[in-house]
Structure formats: C-alpha cells, structure tokens
Amino acid sequence: MSEAQEREKICQQAGADQDRTVICRCEDVTLGEIRRLIGEGVHTLDEIKRLTRAGMGLCQGRTCRHLILQEVSRLTGVPVEELTLPTFRPPTRPVKLGVIARAAAGARQDAGAGVPHPAAGREALPVGGESRG
C-alpha cells in the first residue's frame, strides 16, 4: 500500500474510537469528524475551522490547534511548518459585548475629560506620563 493509500484508509476508517476522541472540547469536535473531512479533501486549518467551528470556542484554539495541525500534516503529508494557521484575531479570550459597549458609552460621555482611572479607589497609576525617552 502506498503512503497516500494508507492515509486515505485512515480517513475512511474513522469509526467509533475516533468519534470518542475529542479534538476541540470547546465546540465538541471529534477526531472522526476531522478525519472524514480531510478524507473529503478539506486540507486547510481555516476550512476545518469554518466547517466544524473547531478553534472558535472559549479557548480560541489553544487546545485543538496543535492536534489538528498534526492530523492534517500526517494525513496530507505536508510538514507542519508548511501549513498555514488560521488568522489570530482579538479578542484572545471571550468578553461580554456589554463590557465593551459600556466602555464606549462611558468614553463618549466623558469625551476624554476627567476619565475615571482604572485603579480608582486605590492609588493613582504612575504610568500616565513619561519621565524619559
């Protein structure tokens, strides 16, 4: 069996064991799903992400990215360093939209004057001005 055939077989044979193997625990994506996709010709991390949501959950891919990279590399024969990673965009961690909206509204109201300090109630931050450079 050629190497390519062997890889194809791994994708086709993805079964119960692979369906019990979780790759992206935030979005509940299994090894079976990923192997079947690769078998169908889905070979980029971005495509896998968009089709399965793997990497779009709470941890933003910290857990699954590594595993998917290895799986794609192994089953396509492309070395990991040649695979393109999905784009890293802020926020790196989930944040409630309300938190941002409140800050934006507050900033408009204050219009830059007398903005309460982040450490208000404690002591003033000494980081505002620059003494050097």
Binding site: P90, P91, V95, K96, V99
Partner: peptide, 23 residues
C-alpha cells in the same frame, strides 16, 4: 486579561473588579 493587540499599537484588556468587568 489582555484581549488583543491592534495595528495602532493599542492593547485592549478586561479587568475584573468586585465581580464586574471593565474594559
């Protein structure tokens, strides 16, 4: 928690204070 780095060199953060958050 630092949330991101933007092209103008600004970093955004979320800080938890007494069960609430500020940006």
């Amino acid at each position: 928690q630092v949330l991101g780095y933007y092209p103008d060199g600004v970093l955004t953060m979320e800080r938890s204070v007494d069960g609430d958050s500020e940006y």
